[in-house]
Protein backbone atom coordinates (compact mmCIF):
# COMPACT_ATOMS: atom_id res chain seq x y z
CA UNK A 1 0.00 0.00 0.00
CA UNK A 2 1.30 3.46 -0.81
CA UNK A 3 2.03 5.52 2.27
CA UNK A 4 0.19 8.79 1.78
CA UNK A 5 1.19 10.19 5.13
CA UNK A 6 3.03 13.45 4.72
CA UNK A 7 5.42 15.03 7.20
CA UNK A 8 4.12 18.42 6.08
CA UNK A 9 1.17 20.07 7.81
CA UNK A 10 -2.05 19.01 6.13
CA UNK A 11 -3.67 22.40 6.17
CA UNK A 12 -2.40 25.78 7.01
CA UNK A 13 -1.32 27.07 3.65
CA UNK A 14 -3.90 29.04 1.76
CA UNK A 15 -2.65 28.09 -1.70
CA UNK A 16 -3.38 24.38 -1.44
CA UNK A 17 -6.95 25.16 -0.40
CA UNK A 18 -7.74 26.12 -4.02
CA UNK A 19 -6.56 22.87 -5.51
CA UNK A 20 -9.58 20.70 -4.60
CA UNK A 21 -11.96 23.27 -6.06
CA UNK A 22 -10.00 23.65 -9.23
CA UNK A 23 -9.68 19.92 -9.71
CA UNK A 24 -13.38 19.47 -9.00
CA UNK A 25 -14.26 21.97 -11.73
CA UNK A 26 -11.81 20.38 -14.12
CA UNK A 27 -13.16 16.90 -13.54
CA UNK A 28 -16.72 18.16 -13.83
CA UNK A 29 -16.00 19.82 -17.19
CA UNK A 30 -14.01 16.81 -18.33
CA UNK A 31 -16.90 14.52 -17.47
CA UNK A 32 -19.35 16.64 -19.43
CA UNK A 33 -16.99 16.95 -22.40
CA UNK A 34 -16.34 13.23 -22.57
CA UNK A 35 -20.01 12.41 -22.25
CA UNK A 36 -20.83 14.99 -24.92
CA UNK A 37 -18.44 13.40 -27.36
CA UNK A 38 -19.70 9.95 -26.45
CA UNK A 39 -23.32 10.95 -26.90
CA UNK A 40 -22.62 12.47 -30.27
CA UNK A 41 -20.70 9.40 -31.35
CA UNK A 42 -23.47 7.07 -30.39
CA UNK A 43 -26.11 9.22 -32.08
CA UNK A 44 -24.02 9.14 -35.21
CA UNK A 45 -23.52 5.39 -34.97
CA UNK A 46 -27.24 4.88 -34.58
CA UNK A 47 -27.92 6.96 -37.67
CA UNK A 48 -25.17 5.33 -39.59
CA UNK A 49 -26.56 1.88 -38.76
CA UNK A 50 -30.02 2.80 -39.88
CA UNK A 51 -28.79 4.50 -43.00
CA UNK A 52 -26.32 2.26 -44.68
CA UNK A 53 -28.00 0.27 -47.37
CA UNK A 54 -30.75 2.82 -47.82
CA UNK A 55 -31.24 5.69 -50.18
CA UNK A 56 -33.95 8.10 -51.09
CA UNK A 57 -35.11 9.05 -54.55
CA UNK A 58 -36.69 12.47 -54.86
CA UNK A 59 -38.95 13.27 -57.77
CA UNK A 60 -39.54 17.03 -57.89
CA UNK A 61 -43.18 18.00 -57.85
CA UNK A 62 -44.71 18.95 -61.11
CA UNK A 63 -45.21 22.65 -61.56
CA UNK A 64 -48.88 22.53 -62.40
CA UNK A 65 -52.03 20.52 -61.74
CA UNK A 66 -52.07 19.16 -65.27
CA UNK A 67 -48.82 17.34 -64.90
CA UNK A 68 -49.97 15.33 -61.88
CA UNK A 69 -50.41 12.34 -64.11
CA UNK A 70 -46.93 12.96 -65.48
CA UNK A 71 -45.55 12.69 -61.92
CA UNK A 72 -47.42 9.45 -61.35
CA UNK A 73 -45.91 8.10 -64.54
CA UNK A 74 -42.44 9.16 -63.44
CA UNK A 75 -42.90 7.37 -60.13
CA UNK A 76 -43.94 4.21 -61.90
CA UNK A 77 -40.95 4.39 -64.22
CA UNK A 78 -38.53 4.86 -61.35
CA UNK A 79 -39.99 1.97 -59.36
CA UNK A 80 -39.81 -0.27 -62.37
CA UNK A 81 -36.23 0.75 -63.08
CA UNK A 82 -35.29 0.13 -59.45
CA UNK A 83 -36.81 -3.31 -59.37
CA UNK A 84 -35.08 -4.17 -62.62
CA UNK A 85 -31.65 -3.69 -61.08
CA UNK A 86 -32.13 -6.74 -58.82
CA UNK A 87 -30.09 -5.18 -56.02
CA UNK A 88 -33.06 -3.56 -54.43
CA UNK A 89 -34.61 -5.16 -51.40
CA UNK A 90 -37.65 -2.95 -51.02
CA UNK A 91 -39.09 0.18 -52.57
CA UNK A 92 -41.58 2.33 -50.66
CA UNK A 93 -43.22 5.39 -52.11
CA UNK A 94 -43.96 7.71 -49.22
CA UNK A 95 -47.62 8.65 -49.10
CA UNK A 96 -48.69 12.26 -48.81
CA UNK A 97 -49.61 11.81 -45.16
CA UNK A 98 -46.24 10.20 -44.34
CA UNK A 99 -44.54 13.13 -46.01
CA UNK A 100 -46.69 15.55 -44.02
CA UNK A 101 -45.70 13.78 -40.81
CA UNK A 102 -42.03 14.09 -41.69
CA UNK A 103 -42.34 17.78 -42.42
CA UNK A 104 -44.75 18.70 -39.65
CA UNK A 105 -42.02 19.47 -37.07
CA UNK A 106 -40.55 22.06 -39.44
CA UNK A 107 -43.45 23.40 -41.45
CA UNK A 108 -46.51 22.88 -39.26
CA UNK A 109 -49.40 20.44 -39.30
CA UNK A 110 -51.45 21.96 -42.08
CA UNK A 111 -48.79 21.66 -44.74
CA UNK A 112 -50.85 19.07 -46.62
CA UNK A 113 -53.56 21.57 -47.32
CA UNK A 114 -51.26 24.27 -48.60
CA UNK A 115 -50.20 24.47 -52.20
CA UNK A 116 -46.46 24.31 -51.52
CA UNK A 117 -45.12 21.91 -54.16
CA UNK A 118 -43.79 18.86 -52.36
CA UNK A 119 -41.50 16.34 -54.00
CA UNK A 120 -42.32 12.69 -54.00
CA UNK A 121 -39.99 10.59 -51.89
CA UNK A 122 -39.19 6.96 -52.54
CA UNK A 123 -37.37 5.00 -49.81
CA UNK A 124 -35.14 2.29 -51.16
CA UNK A 125 -33.35 -0.45 -49.25
CA UNK A 126 -30.56 -2.25 -51.01
CA UNK A 127 -29.42 -5.83 -50.80
CA UNK A 128 -25.89 -4.68 -51.49
CA UNK A 129 -24.36 -1.47 -50.19
CA UNK A 130 -21.21 -1.11 -52.27
CA UNK A 131 -20.75 2.44 -53.59
CA UNK A 132 -20.74 1.28 -57.20
CA UNK A 133 -24.25 -0.22 -56.83
CA UNK A 134 -25.46 3.22 -55.79
CA UNK A 135 -23.86 4.58 -58.95
CA UNK A 136 -25.55 1.87 -60.99
CA UNK A 137 -28.90 2.88 -59.54
CA UNK A 138 -28.18 6.51 -60.17
CA UNK A 139 -27.62 5.95 -63.87
CA UNK A 140 -30.62 3.63 -64.15
CA UNK A 141 -32.87 6.31 -62.66
CA UNK A 142 -31.32 9.14 -64.64
CA UNK A 143 -32.22 7.27 -67.83
CA UNK A 144 -35.91 7.13 -67.00
CA UNK A 145 -36.40 10.38 -65.05
CA UNK A 146 -33.47 12.78 -65.59
CA UNK A 147 -34.53 15.30 -62.95
CA UNK A 148 -34.92 12.75 -60.13
CA UNK A 149 -32.45 13.20 -57.30
CA UNK A 150 -30.81 10.16 -55.73
CA UNK A 151 -29.68 10.85 -52.18
CA UNK A 152 -27.62 8.17 -50.47
CA UNK A 153 -27.24 10.42 -47.37
CA UNK A 154 -23.50 10.41 -47.86
CA UNK A 155 -23.16 14.14 -48.28
CA UNK A 156 -25.27 14.93 -45.28
CA UNK A 157 -23.56 12.22 -43.32
CA UNK A 158 -20.14 13.52 -44.29
CA UNK A 159 -20.99 16.87 -42.77
CA UNK A 160 -22.12 15.19 -39.59
CA UNK A 161 -18.87 13.29 -39.33
CA UNK A 162 -16.97 16.52 -39.81
CA UNK A 163 -19.10 18.06 -37.11
CA UNK A 164 -18.38 15.21 -34.71
CA UNK A 165 -14.67 15.44 -35.40
CA UNK A 166 -14.85 19.16 -34.75
CA UNK A 167 -16.75 18.54 -31.58
CA UNK A 168 -14.22 15.97 -30.45
CA UNK A 169 -11.41 18.42 -31.20
CA UNK A 170 -13.21 21.12 -29.26
CA UNK A 171 -13.65 18.83 -26.28
CA UNK A 172 -9.97 17.93 -26.47
CA UNK A 173 -9.02 21.62 -26.57
CA UNK A 174 -11.22 22.34 -23.57
CA UNK A 175 -9.63 19.42 -21.72
CA UNK A 176 -6.14 20.69 -22.62
CA UNK A 177 -6.89 24.23 -21.54
CA UNK A 178 -8.33 23.07 -18.24
CA UNK A 179 -5.37 20.73 -17.71
CA UNK A 180 -2.92 23.55 -18.39
CA UNK A 181 -4.85 25.82 -16.05
CA UNK A 182 -4.71 23.12 -13.39
CA UNK A 183 -0.99 22.58 -13.87
CA UNK A 184 -0.26 26.31 -13.70
CA UNK A 185 -2.34 26.70 -10.57
CA UNK A 186 -0.58 23.77 -8.97
CA UNK A 187 2.77 25.35 -9.85
CA UNK A 188 1.65 28.60 -8.28
CA UNK A 189 0.13 26.89 -5.23
CA UNK A 190 3.20 24.72 -4.73
CA UNK A 191 5.54 27.71 -4.93
CA UNK A 192 3.36 29.53 -2.41
CA UNK A 193 3.38 26.48 -0.11
CA UNK A 194 7.14 26.16 -0.49
CA UNK A 195 7.49 29.77 0.62
CA UNK A 196 5.03 29.24 3.44
CA UNK A 197 6.79 26.07 4.61
CA UNK A 198 10.27 27.47 4.06
CA UNK A 199 11.30 26.87 7.65
CA UNK A 200 9.97 23.34 7.70
CA UNK A 201 11.75 22.53 4.47
CA UNK A 202 14.94 24.03 5.87
CA UNK A 203 14.67 21.60 8.79
CA UNK A 204 14.11 18.71 6.38
CA UNK A 205 17.26 19.78 4.61
CA UNK A 206 19.38 20.17 7.72
CA UNK A 207 18.59 16.67 8.84
CA UNK A 208 19.62 15.26 5.49
CA UNK A 209 16.46 15.01 3.41
CA UNK A 210 17.02 14.59 -0.29
CA UNK A 211 15.15 16.82 -2.71
CA UNK A 212 13.14 13.80 -3.79
CA UNK A 213 11.98 13.30 -0.22
CA UNK A 214 10.73 16.85 0.12
CA UNK A 215 9.19 16.71 -3.35
CA UNK A 216 7.43 13.47 -2.44
CA UNK A 217 5.98 15.06 0.68
CA UNK A 218 4.50 17.83 -1.42
CA UNK A 219 3.37 15.43 -4.12
CA UNK A 220 1.47 13.29 -1.61
CA UNK A 221 -0.13 16.33 -0.12
CA UNK A 222 -1.13 17.73 -3.48
CA UNK A 223 -2.43 14.35 -4.58
CA UNK A 224 -4.66 14.13 -1.51
CA UNK A 225 -6.00 17.65 -2.06
CA UNK A 226 -6.55 17.01 -5.77
CA UNK A 227 -8.13 13.62 -5.16
CA UNK A 228 -10.63 15.19 -2.82
CA UNK A 229 -11.54 17.57 -5.63
CA UNK A 230 -11.69 14.69 -8.11
CA UNK A 231 -14.27 12.92 -6.02
CA UNK A 232 -16.35 16.09 -5.85
CA UNK A 233 -16.06 16.71 -9.58
CA UNK A 234 -16.84 13.08 -10.39
CA UNK A 235 -19.88 13.06 -8.12
CA UNK A 236 -21.30 16.34 -9.40
CA UNK A 237 -20.53 15.39 -13.02
CA UNK A 238 -22.27 12.04 -12.66
CA UNK A 239 -25.28 13.57 -10.98
CA UNK A 240 -25.52 16.14 -13.75
CA UNK A 241 -25.36 13.45 -16.42
CA UNK A 242 -28.05 11.40 -14.74
CA UNK A 243 -30.18 14.50 -14.43
CA UNK A 244 -29.75 15.30 -18.14
CA UNK A 245 -30.66 11.73 -19.02
CA UNK A 246 -33.73 11.89 -16.85
CA UNK A 247 -34.76 15.19 -18.42
CA UNK A 248 -34.12 13.83 -21.91
CA UNK A 249 -36.34 10.85 -21.18
CA UNK A 250 -39.17 13.18 -20.25
CA UNK A 251 -38.79 15.21 -23.40
CA UNK A 252 -41.04 14.00 -26.18
CA UNK A 253 -38.42 12.47 -28.40
CA UNK A 254 -39.46 13.45 -31.88
CA UNK A 255 -36.18 13.15 -33.67
CA UNK A 256 -33.81 12.54 -30.72
CA UNK A 257 -32.46 9.06 -31.24
CA UNK A 258 -32.41 6.85 -28.19
CA UNK A 259 -28.95 7.32 -26.72
CA UNK A 260 -27.53 5.34 -23.89
CA UNK A 261 -23.97 5.84 -22.76
CA UNK A 262 -22.37 2.43 -22.62
CA UNK A 263 -20.80 0.65 -19.68
CA UNK A 264 -17.34 1.47 -21.03
CA UNK A 265 -18.18 5.15 -20.79
CA UNK A 266 -19.23 4.89 -17.15
CA UNK A 267 -16.08 2.91 -16.45
CA UNK A 268 -13.85 5.60 -17.98
CA UNK A 269 -15.43 8.38 -15.92
CA UNK A 270 -13.45 7.75 -12.70
CA UNK A 271 -10.22 7.86 -14.70
CA UNK A 272 -10.78 11.52 -15.51
CA UNK A 273 -10.54 12.27 -11.80
CA UNK A 274 -7.59 9.98 -11.22
CA UNK A 275 -5.82 11.53 -14.20
CA UNK A 276 -6.40 15.04 -12.86
CA UNK A 277 -5.11 14.08 -9.40
CA UNK A 278 -2.02 12.47 -10.94
CA UNK A 279 -1.41 15.55 -13.09
CA UNK A 280 -1.57 17.75 -9.99
CA UNK A 281 0.76 15.40 -8.12
CA UNK A 282 3.39 15.22 -10.85
CA UNK A 283 3.27 18.98 -11.35
CA UNK A 284 3.82 19.60 -7.63
CA UNK A 285 6.70 17.14 -7.60
CA UNK A 286 8.47 18.76 -10.53
CA UNK A 287 7.87 22.26 -9.16
CA UNK A 288 9.42 21.38 -5.80
CA UNK A 289 12.46 19.80 -7.43
CA UNK A 290 12.92 22.88 -9.59
CA UNK A 291 12.68 25.24 -6.64
CA UNK A 292 14.93 23.23 -4.32
CA UNK A 293 17.64 23.08 -6.94
CA UNK A 294 18.29 26.77 -6.34
CA UNK A 295 19.05 26.21 -2.63
CA UNK A 296 22.28 24.96 -1.12
Amino acid sequence: MIDLRSELPLGGDSATAYIPWLVAIMVFLGTLAVSGVNTFDSILQGWSRSMTGTLTVQIPSAASETSLSETTAQIERVVRALNATQIVDSVTVLSKSELNNLLAPWLGDDIGDSDIPLPTLIDVTLTDEAPQTVEKLRTAIAEVVPNAVVDDHRRWFGHLIELTEGFRLLALCVACVVAIALALTVVYATRASLAEFKDIIAVFHFIGAQDMYVATQFAKRTFLAAFKGSIGGFASGTVTLLLIRWLAQNVESGFLPDVSLGLSFWLTLPFIGILAALLAMVTAYITVLGTLRTMM
Binding site: L8, L10, I200, V203, F206, I207, G208, A209, D211
Partner: peptide
Amino acid sequence: RGRLPAIRRKLGVIFQDFRLLDH
Protein backbone atom coordinates in the same frame (compact mmCIF):
# COMPACT_ATOMS: atom_id res chain seq x y z
CA ARG B 1 24.20 19.34 -4.35
CA GLY B 2 23.26 15.70 -4.55
CA ARG B 3 26.10 14.73 -2.21
CA LEU B 4 25.10 17.09 0.58
CA PRO B 5 22.25 15.07 2.16
CA ALA B 6 24.63 12.19 2.91
CA ILE B 7 26.98 14.61 4.68
CA ARG B 8 24.14 16.31 6.53
CA ARG B 9 23.08 12.94 7.92
CA LYS B 10 26.41 12.77 9.73
CA LEU B 11 25.56 16.02 11.49
CA GLY B 12 23.43 16.68 14.52
CA VAL B 13 22.40 20.29 14.90
CA ILE B 14 20.83 21.89 17.95
CA PHE B 15 19.56 25.26 16.79
CA GLN B 16 19.44 28.24 19.05
CA ASP B 17 15.71 28.48 18.35
CA PHE B 18 15.30 24.67 18.25
CA ARG B 19 13.42 24.66 14.94
CA LEU B 20 11.05 21.93 16.01
CA LEU B 21 8.17 21.24 13.66
CA ASP B 22 5.04 22.46 15.37
CA HIS B 23 2.68 20.23 13.43
